[in-house]
Amino acid sequence: MNATPAVQLRDLGVTYGGATGREVLRGIDLSIAPNEIVCIVGHSGIGKSTLIRCIAGLQRPTTGEVLIGGTAITAPPATLALVSQDYGRTLMPWLRVGENVRLPLRGVGLARAVQDERVAEALSVVGLVEAARSYPWQLSGGMQQRVAIARALAYRPQVLLMDEPFASVDAQTRAELEDLLLTLQRDLGITVVLVTHDVDESVYLSDRVVVVGGRPALVREIVEVPISGVRDQLTTKADPAFIACRTQVLSSIQASKDSGSAVGG
């Protein structure tokens, strides 16, 4: 932990609707190293999207601060890309798929040919080459989600934030996209923060799983995943270490629910 963390949260808290409003997050402290993959799990409506929007600089936390690469942010940093949970609404309906993927690449000093290359590469990676000239509303939900992922990948961020990015795709595609993410993360050396509902997915992808829970939500537990080397859908998921982590995450979520209702009731 001597290198500057890629992402650091210091005593982050969010209260909606002013001082008398609903406190969603409280005292979140978290430090994410460069090249690390961290998954955030927790019950629905607990504040995961709120947390990731704060990290993205789209929302000001009520208390505390977010540091990206060591500097506190007040606006979305250029080195960061977000795949939002509401992916369908993040695609510009007047732009074809290819142009949607290109949009963030325009105006950052990339030659047109380089842009073309990146767009084509990102689309082929998510298996949507044929859809490049379609409009987003001509695609299924799962395809739209992959466009949003392609757009983030083409941007080549240092920190990739993903809010339930694989929720609308079938199991097979999901597994492929998970492996793709792991490969890209290894090859490009990016930091990934990913929100998911799926405990298996969180353990499979992560170096650490962060369980948030309670009302207001706190960091309940951080589960280290001691699986080294290249992961594989079949062998990794049968690994005793994987199963142990999975059990630990599950019970932690369970416990956070009990304690949450105790606080709430």
């Binding site: 606006a75 977000l82 609404r89 993040t90 510009m92 949009l103 325009r106």
Partner: peptide, 22 residues
Amino acid sequence: DPELLSTARSFGLPLWRRLLFV
């Protein structure tokens, strides 16, 4: 749609680009 604007902002599009392209 605020989600479109958030997207443009999260990719660091400057104001004039957001106005023109979003």
